[in-house]
Design a protein around this nucleic acid. Structure first.
Lengths: 225, 225
DNA sequence: TTCATATCGAGAAACATTTCTCGTTATTAT
DNA sequence: ATAATAACGAGAAATGTTTCTCGATATGAA
């Protein structure tokens, strides 16, 4: 349908992935500034606090369509709104979560998601002893019902928090249910039709970066020979 | 000497952050191949399964010092060892964890860390009702004891899994205890001396990337103001 | 043995991201 | 009112990452 749409004065640009990853950091930082009663902030200031280059901050924020004032900076409330709109946090996306182990429960219990426009509306598990119990006000349903329910409820987003071995099967059930985006916390490569978007969230990735940096910097305990 | 580097036969190169983030993915993938009895694998094959460019896979793996065989590929066991050595996963790093909420418990219960060379040796909390209780075989200690204990046990790595508001205070205690690397799961910008390495793990970052991609691709439910 | 081919390794080219530079503009002080 | 200045915006330059190209080499088939 119509893709090109002049949305008034707001220039919606495409953001690179590094920029997208930084936007939530700015958002949280700006929230704390707002709570302290601050009204405006400059890129220089943000850059100082977040240890980022001021120009980079400026370019990052520019993708949201915000306009700043020379010598002053940006209005914090405006900036927050722009980031939220740009990331789609102002309108809620409903999601299904599968896997109610430690991580799944942590995700279910994370109230913060609502502020990020994400609402987990149902939780699933394959463990019979868990089905029917309640975690963080969510009744656990059998994973067999996922595909059907997703279709009926027009759910677009699925969250996978099961062990790696079970991930592929769950992903396929999600695909069958018409889910178009998957947030995958299992350390497994999902093989799915290309039209389904997969965002892998691998704890080990962050750990690898940290290990390498520590190892390089401090000589952690690199074995000789 | 024409070259100033003579570090033995294994060429330890520097890896870019994107490469570092992909290495654990390769590692897990190779593990599953090994379990299925496979012996060798080529970059082309890996690239197909992981939806990555074969050349990129080759360059990524090259940083670990592995050498492949034309027409054959790499020996999987060798490759696994190289990745593990490169990331320092073959020797254990001891870490302290602070915050035993949902996320903290998920991290404490995650057995996989041991395979990644990470061992959480103590868990801390500020909640008096939690102190003294046991989570995943870890006795919860009062956070006041962290700095002292870290110094006595020569702990270098700290994991922060507390609410954003408490993160700065915890980070400072870690710095006081001589910890040199912090894995921060709180959505907060820590202000610390520059010699302390901080790896921020922000759930919202992954969500932001996913939201943007879904929004752009499928027109999730873009508001018309 | 010799040929065809899949794959590696390394350097070049293309592309993406970050950092720099400079002209413009709103505020504050004189 | 005017000058000095802090900060924005946009384009250029520098840097980093990915993709392409090509020569070399091990394996399997003729």
């Amino acid at each position: 349908m119509t893709k090109e749409q002049t949305e008034g004065n707001k220039q919606e640009r495409v953001a690179s992935e590094p920029t997208l990853r930084r936007l939530p950091t700015y958002h949280h930082y700006l929230k704390t500034l707002a709570e302290r009663g601050r009204d405006v902030v400059s890129c220089t200031h943000i850059g100082n606090d977040l240890r980022l280059d001021p120009t980079q901050v400026r370019k990052d924020l520019a993708v949201t369509g915000i306009r700043g004032l020379p010598k002053v900076g940006y209005r914090i409330d405006q900036l927050l709104t722009c980031i939220e709109e740009f990331l789609g946090w102002n309108n809620t996306t409903e999601a299904f979560l599968v896997g109610t182990g430690h991580l799944g429960q942590a995700l279910l219990g994370y109230e913060g998601f609502k502020r990020y426009g994400l609402e987990i509306v149902a939780a699933f598990d394959s463990d019979e002893t868990k089905i029917g119990t309640t975690v963080a006000a969510h009744k656990i349903l059998p994973v067999e019902k996922l595909a059907n329910l997703a279709r009926r409820m027009k759910i677009r987003l699925g969250i996978i928090a099961v062990p790696a071995a079970a991930a592929q099967q769950v992903a396929e059930a999600m695909a069958e249910g018409g889910i178009t985006g998957i947030w995958n916390f299992a350390p497994a490569a999902l093989s799915l039709p290309p039209e389904i978007l997969v965002q892998n969230e691998n704890l080990a990735s962050g750990l690898a970066v940290l290990s390498a940096k520590i190892g390089r910097l401090a000589g952690l305990d690199i074995p000789r020979e």
